[in-house]
Design a protein around this nucleic acid. Structure first.
Length: 289
DNA sequence: AGGCATGTTACAGG
DNA sequence: ACCTGTAACATGCC
């Protein structure tokens, strides 16, 4: 589900709903995630309070009690459900159509909170993980230490961009998804950003003009922040307990649109799909140079 | 049946 | 030691 905007939306939602609550108990339904869940660590958080939830790149960082941190990555299909009493609320779901019954099968960890609330970590493909650290080790962990700038930070600008690509002969799409360069962009947003910038995903970075780089930088900031504002453009809150099918609102201009007409009104070209680094890449041959 | 899927990373080769 | 590209991980939908 998650690229930066989605994770940010999840973070805000969690902050609102479960911060300042004490974790009464934790049930591990299936600890086999990307990394096996550490039971001793899990035991340590019982009786402690969720103090704060932060985001770095696509990672969520829960501060629990004093000097203890839970690092969560949602992988491809990780999501959190918050249950208030018996109601299963779909706060942040993105995996085909969510079916409450089928979905329960993939509940991995259940955090029992105060006020009869529950936080459920659910992950179909098990690429996500939950790890625990103290402060020092958290920020020294290999997950966080190699991350590049946050795309929405001022630090991410033309000169940072040029400095990084200097001497690298790679295509622009790879660079945008390179977490050591900027952290938070995945396949969907890389495609969308390049469409908005009028740059083909295959372009070598050494050949980009300052004008084009600026366009890319601005598109990144614009698209990511817009997406956060909209509640994560690739996800939609579900209220499916009444049996109604949730509706995905698609805002994508090129992603997944192979063969469809280009989104630019004055263009009759069809969107192409090619594979770059094992990932689908969509673009308009006419509008992207 | 086979292809495809928002993620990271271990590994091999240069 | 660095840099780059490939394959693998698990599961389900089309």
């Amino acid at each position: 589900m998650p690229e930066l905007p989605e994770v940010e939306v999840v973070k805000r939602s969690l902050e609102r709903k479960i911060s300042n609550l004490i974790i009464k108990n934790v049930e591990i339904r299936d600890g086999k995630l990307r990394y096996e869940l550490n039971k001793e660590d899990i035991n340590q958080i019982k009786g402690k309070k969720i103090i704060k939830i932060q985001r770095r790149s696509k990672f969520l960082i829960f501060e629990i009690g004093k000097n203890f941190f839970m690092l969560v990555h949602l992988g491809m299909t990780g999501k959190f459900f918050i249950m208030d009493g018996n109601e299963r609320k779909f706060k942040t779901s993105f995996y085909y159509n969510i079916n409450p019954q089928k979905d329960k099968k993939h509940d991995k960890v259940i955090f029992y909170l105060e006020k009869k609330k529950k936080l459920i970590y659910n992950d179909v493909r098990k690429f996500g993980f939950i790890k625990f650290y103290n402060y020092k080790k958290l920020y020294k962990s290999f997950h966080l230490i190699n991350l590049g700038v946050e795309p929405l930070d001022k630090e991410f600008n033309l000169s940072y961009f040029k400095k990084y690509i200097n001497g690298r002969d790679r295509n622009i799409k790879d660079i945008l998804m390179d977490q050591k360069f900027i952290s938070g962009i995945g396949n969907i947003y890389a495609n969308e950003v390049l469409f908005a910038s009028g740059v083909r995903p295959t372009r070598r970075v050494v050949k980009l003009s300052d004008f084009e780089i600026n366009k890319i930088v601005r598109s990144i900031k614009k698209i990511l922040s817009k997406s956060i504002r909209l509640g994560g453009s690739s996800i939609k809150d579900f209220s499916s307990d009444d049996g109604k099918k949730g509706v995905f609102q698609q805002y994508f201009k090129v992603y997944g649109r192979k063969g469809e007409r280009c989104s630019n009104t004055d263009c009759n070209n069809k969107v192409m799909r090619i594979v770059i680094s094992n990932r689908s890449s969509f673009f308009c041959n006419q509008c992207q140079k």
